[in-house]
Design a protein around this nucleic acid. Structure first.
Length: 481
RNA sequence: CGCGGAGUUGAGGAGUGGUCCCUCGGGAGGCUCAUAACCUCCAUACGUUGGUUCGAAUCCAACCUCCGCAACCA
């Protein structure tokens, strides 16, 4: 009954393009935290999936001459494959916003908000560029004009939309932020969102005319409108754990810990929280905001040619190399620059040379010196160690995966220094008992490393464990590239 | 002066008053158990100008530079 529970989700990627490094980063980080909680003895519900409605997807499908359903089936499958290739927990829940169950929940969510008086109809002005034959938003514009058709005036079209009474929740949101200073991590993001909310919220539109945007969930009770994707997609965080029909399951897991990119700060930590309040639900537990992965100081883009495909890296260097890089070499909260060269350097220096080579050295000495095997410490004992607690567990509790991983490599560096200082490879000839004692210590140390690696690089953790148990290493852990 | 963030050695990061720390890269030694791996030592830095202080990367002021956000963009 007092079982510890943890529910974590990523943001659902919008499937109008294939997966990039940013998706891989968010997925792997959420997976590391999910595994870490499990490692601590929690039972974990881990959710991800794909966001599949909306105008952009509708257009994309038509562009490719496909039925929208066929298009989203294909792209969603790519993302689902990605979760496997990234080695995410096999009991991961993968939701699609086109799932029947989700669509029903989204409609019910709408009804609850409506019942609470938070949904109303109002005229909505849209800027339309006749040149592109597209709606334009302010961020699309340059000096108030369409950059593609600069000589043309934009047309203003009015249409009736449903709106959500966001403004009503200003005070509630500010209270949430104030009451829980860790609600959004890192802290400067909480500051950012709370100053945004303080500046007076405007209600936002949550529907589109069905005739213009047929690819979406119908607004309950009004067939002429489609729910705007945001409203639809966010509801997945509650629908996947049984809301609304299975409240026992829901209560068991809620509230959620969310990972999101910095471009999602507002949607996740303000809009979605207001929606939850409106539907009579409690807010999320915590929202972790990632930075972006950039390359050579620029946003990755096809035209610049600096796009890094996570799948290519996995093929070339192996899954755990990518997980390592995401864990240790990408800043936990700020933007990070990434290039393939840098990836290769880090791989050689820290995986081949440091971790892989140390394992080879220790195993070689162990097997040639006839060292007696000893019992390895249990996970519980390792977790109770004060140093582990302070440097590893506390860092992960704060989602600072980088700091936690640094600690593991600090221990590896200590081992390398120890070998050089004690020189068991020399003392084996002069005082073998001492040498064996030293090697036994190194085996224990490596065991601790393997246990700490479990959430971060699960496959390598298993390989190291196996080598330590059998005293044999069939092949190098990470080959130099 | 819209709001917010940031400027630390060649690169990337840590560091909220007391000789600037870590990783990669560079230089010089050493070791041989190991995947031309490993260890030790060395070099180079706190955007600028002032101020507070016995003492500042850290507090204050001004300036310079860069980057997000400015709402429906998923």
């Amino acid at each position: 009954m007092s079982e510890k529970k943890f529910y974590i989700t990523t943001t659902l990627p919008y499937v109008n393009a294939k997966a990039h490094m940013g998706h891989a980063m968010e997925f792997v980080r959420a997976d590391i935290i999910a595994r870490f909680k499990e490692w601590l003895g929690y039972s974990v519900f881990f959710n991800t999936g794909t966001d599949e409605h909306g105008l952009k997807i509708y257009r994309k499908a038509l562009e490719q001459g496909k039925d929208p359903q066929q298009y989203v089936d294909e792209v969603s499958k790519l993302f689902k494959d990605l979760t496997q290739k990234l080695g995410m927990k096999s009991d991961l829940n993968f939701v699609r916003t086109t799932d029947e169950k989700h669509m029903r929940a989204a409609q019910e969510f709408w009804r609850r908000c409506e019942k609470n008086g938070d949904i109303y109809k109002k005229n909505y002005k849209i800027l339309y560029c006749v040149g592109c034959e597209l709606e334009k938003t302010h961020s699309d514009l340059v000096e108030g004009r369409c950059p593609e058709h600069f000589d043309r005036e934009l047309e203003e079209i009015e249409e009736e939309n449903y709106f959500f009474r966001f403004s009503k929740y200003t005070q509630n949101l500010l209270e949430i932020y104030k009451k829980n200073p860790n609600f959004v991590r890192p802290d400067f993001r909480l500051k950012e969102i709370s100053s945004f909310v303080e500046r007076e919220l405007e209600d936002f539109s949550i529907s589109r005319l069905r005739e213009k945007q047929p690819w979406g969930i119908p607004v309950p009770g009004d067939e002429d409108h489609t729910m705007y994707v945001w409203f639809d997609a966010l509801v997945n965080y509650v629908s996947v754990i049984g809301w609304p029909e299975n409240m026992d399951v829901f209560d068991n897991w809620w509230p959620v810990t969310q990972y999101a990119g910095k471009d999602n700060l507002r949607q996740q930590s303000a809009m979605w929280q207001a929606m939850l309040l409106s539907a009579g639900l409690s807010p999320s537990r915590q929202i972790i905001i990632n930075g972006f992965v950039i390359s050579d100081g620029q946003k990755m883009s096809k035209s610049i040619g600096n796009v890094i495909d996570p799948l290519v890296l996995i093929e070339e260097y192996g899954l755990d190399a990518l997980r390592y890089y995401i864990a240790r070499e990408i800043h936990p909260f700020e933007d990070s620059d990434m290039t393939e060269d840098k990836f290769k350097n880090c791989y050689n220096a820290n995986l081949a040379n440091s971790l892989g080579n140390t394992l080879s050295r220790v195993i070689k000495m162990y097997s040639s010196y006839e060292v007696e095997s000893r019992d390895f410490p249990s996970l519980q004992e390792i977790q109770k160690d004060r140093e582990v607690e302070e440097n590893f567990i506390s860092a992960l509790n704060e989602f600072n995966i980088q700091k936690a991983t640094d600690y593991i490599w600090k221990r590896i560096a200590n081992m390398e220094r120890f070998i050089q200082d004690q020189q068991p490879f020399k003392t084996i000839k002069t005082s073998p008992a001492k040498a064996k004692e030293d090697v036994a210590y190194l085996m224990q140390e490596l065991w601790v490393v393997s246990q700490l690696l479990q959430p971060i690089m699960p496959n390598s953790a298993i390989l190291i464990e196996k080598a330590l148990r059998t005293g044999l290493l069939d092949s190098p852990l990470f080959l130099r590239k």
